[in-house]
Computed example of a mutant assay.
Amino acid sequence: MKAPLLVPVALALVLGGCARTGEIDATGGITAIRSACPVVGVTAGTGDITLFKTPGATDENAIDVVANITGVRSTCADAGPDIATTVNFNVEARRTDATGARDLVLPYYIAIVRGGTNVVAKRIGRVNVHFDAGQARGQVAGEATTTIARSAATLPAEVRDKLTHRRKAGDEDAAVDPLSQPDVRQAVASASFEALVGFQLTEAQLKYNATR
């Protein structure tokens, strides 16, 4: 993989992962705060790629290959000062011309998103999809890894206290959702990360996916 590249774009999560912001118990406190592991998923608009036989063509008859990212899953090691996440996925491709064997290299990326919109790092990788002669379909497994500092993914103690504070009926703050407080909401967002994968698309490919 290449070195991380900062990119000024906002990514939308379309496939969920392992983290949660919390669960409210019967007394009004939040008993399970959140996992330090990033939520893992596929970025909206980049989970599939379409290649055409003729450059610039976008009609259905000109389609050469369609590929999709599927089966996204992850393993997370969060016991040390850094949180290491390995994201595994499959690339499933279908070609319109099954004549002869063929190898197709497709670029993909993994992006680290903080607070839902801030892309802090991006790495590019490639997978090789092989089609046997006479076969229209091919599949390959892909893998990407990321590391996040535990300190960045950890809520400040005062914010954790606000979230886990037990509230009883009749208390002045019993009906107040701590996440409605701007400082708490901002702290939770700042400590929340997503590890998102997708195909590295050209501007034309992004436009095709958005308008088809």
Rank of each mutant, 00 (worst) to 15 (best):
T21G: 05
E23K: 04
E23H: 07
E23G: 10
I24M: 13
T31P: 01
A32S: 14
I33N: 11
I33Y: 14
R34V: 02
S35W: 11
A36R: 11
P38Q: 03
V40D: 01
T43K: 04
A44H: 08
G45T: 07
T46D: 10
G47Y: 02
G47D: 05
T50S: 09
F52V: 09
K53G: 03
T54I: 13
T54S: 12
G56N: 06
D59T: 11
D59R: 00
E60R: 07
E60N: 07
N61H: 08
N61V: 11
A62W: 07
A62Y: 05
A62D: 15
I63W: 02
I63Q: 07
I63L: 04
V65M: 11
V66S: 08
V66M: 09
N68C: 06
I69C: 02
T70Y: 06
R73K: 11
R73H: 12
S74R: 04
A77I: 12
G80F: 14
D82S: 06
A84D: 14
T86G: 08
T86M: 06
T86R: 10
T86H: 05
N88H: 13
F89K: 05
V91F: 04
V91R: 04
E92M: 14
E92R: 15
A93W: 07
A98Q: 08
G100Q: 05
A101I: 07
D103L: 14
D103A: 15
V105W: 10
L106F: 09
P107M: 03
Y108H: 13
Y108W: 08
Y108K: 03
Y109G: 05
I110F: 01
I112L: 14
V113P: 03
R114C: 03
R114I: 01
G116K: 00
G116T: 01
N118D: 15
V119K: 00
V119F: 05
A121N: 05
A121H: 00
A121Y: 01
A121I: 02
K122M: 13
I124P: 02
I124F: 11
R126L: 09
R126H: 15
V127K: 03
V127E: 01
N128V: 15
N128L: 14
V129A: 03
A133H: 08
G134L: 04
A136G: 10
G138P: 04
G138V: 09
G138Q: 07
Q139L: 13
V140G: 00
V140A: 07
A141Q: 12
A144K: 02
T145G: 14
T146Q: 04
T147K: 09
I148S: 02
I148R: 00
R150Y: 05
R150Q: 12
S151N: 08
S151P: 00
A153G: 03
T154Y: 03
A157L: 13
A157R: 10
A157M: 10
